[in-house]
Computed example of a mutant assay.
Amino acid sequence: MTSKIEFGTVSNPEDAQSLGEMLCQCFNFPIADWPEYRDRIGLENFRVVRQTGEIVGGLAIYRMGQWFGQQSVPMAGIAAVGVPPEHRGKKVAIELLSNTIRELYHKGVPISTLYPATQRLYRQMGYEQAGSRCCWELPTESIKSIDRTLSVQKIKTIQSETLAKIYHQQAQQINGNLDRNPAIWRGIVEHKENVVHAYLIGAETQPEGYIIFSQKSEGNNLYLEIWDWVALTPAAIERLWTFIADHRSQVKNVRWYSGAIDPRLLLLPEQTAKIRFHEMWFLRIINVEKALNLRGYPPEVEAELHLAVKDTWIPDNNSNFVLTVSGGQGEVTKGGRGDLQLEIRALAPLYTGLFTPLQLQMAGQLEATDKAILIATQMFADSHPWMPDFF
């Protein structure tokens, strides 16, 4: 590029409007929707790059957390990364992302997560596949559940603060689930084009779950679109399946978002649920020491792992580290032998548990001694990471 690119925030109405027009073009959504999206995230959480005063790229940052090892790790969710077509192919996105990553590091953010439009760009920036999000579909007539032991109560006014307490009890057990912020909750409970229904499962004083959904048309058929659902007990799962099955006279199918393996399907009589689409979210370790320190680990593991990490964009991550795990907690110091060597992006699927150390080694993503592979396997052993949310 012929002139210098400047990275910064948006602070005046004219720039905010320019950013909105650019992002609306990039993602093909009406400019009338921009004010709501801008205010939901907060203008202070957008970042842009300018060339000769013109905004040539921008993105949004969701400040929230993500659960790993039953601990909520502070996370920056990156969304709406846009560059207008006349400025593409000029490394604008690299300037935008590299400056954002460095800012996050200096602000002490441990990890960052996003849904990539293209893998190549984000891998170049140190992001890698880290977990799944699947859209499942199931014919309502195939559910067959008849269990109405628990009560079901319609929620007349949906308040995310109340539901969040129930959600947290489930989410903290699942690697990759979000520790949601208000913007994510608003996206779940507010849908301008759809009527949203919500029901509480179990006693109001001690609920065991909930469901939030809309009824939508597809051709001549209706289907349920579940925006969010939680079941804290087997009885709640049974009651939710019965509740969904009770729509079968009018509703042909139900759809929801989950991981590639959903244990709720164990309660169904047949394998009638199918995955409509499967996508991967990406994660980047922004601060190696903080990310490894704040994650939870299996409480029975007492071990020490020597890592050697290479990071092109954040010099402080480009080092050797010793991770000591005891009592479910990790402690990181710099130094050590570097028994397990890997690029920063390969650390992401190890950190989340998407791939085992042996799988990463077989794919050429790390080099390690046999003992280091065994120790890393014990430390990062957990369930498949997934999240139902998209941002």
Rank of each mutant, 00 (worst) to 15 (best):
A130P: 03
A130D: 09
G131C: 02
G131V: 01
R133Y: 00
C134S: 13
C135I: 05
C135F: 02
W136N: 01
W136S: 04
E137V: 06
L138I: 05
T140I: 11
T140D: 04
I143A: 03
K144S: 13
S145D: 06
S145Q: 14
I146S: 14
R148I: 11
T149Y: 07
T149L: 04
L150W: 03
S151E: 12
S151F: 07
V152E: 07
Q153T: 15
K154W: 05
I155N: 01
I155Y: 03
I155P: 08
I155V: 13
K156Y: 12
K156A: 09
K156H: 13
I158S: 03
Q159A: 14
S160R: 11
S160L: 08
E161K: 01
K165F: 01
I166Q: 01
H168N: 13
Q169R: 12
Q170N: 10
Q170V: 02
A171M: 02
A171W: 02
Q172M: 10
Q172C: 09
Q173N: 14
Q173W: 00
Q173V: 01
I174G: 11
I174K: 11
N175C: 03
N175M: 02
N177Q: 13
N177R: 11
N177K: 09
L178W: 13
D179R: 03
N181I: 04
N181H: 13
P182K: 04
A183L: 02
A183T: 07
I184Q: 14
W185P: 10
W185K: 10
R186C: 02
G187T: 04
I188V: 14
I188F: 07
I188L: 13
V189M: 10
V189E: 07
V189W: 05
H191W: 11
N194R: 15
N194I: 10
V196S: 12
H197Q: 12
H197T: 08
Y199G: 08
L200N: 07
I201D: 01
I201L: 11
I201K: 04
G202I: 05
A203N: 15
E204Q: 13
Q206C: 09
P207F: 08
G209Q: 03
G209L: 06
I211F: 07
I212C: 03
I212N: 00
S214C: 07
Q215N: 08
Q215K: 08
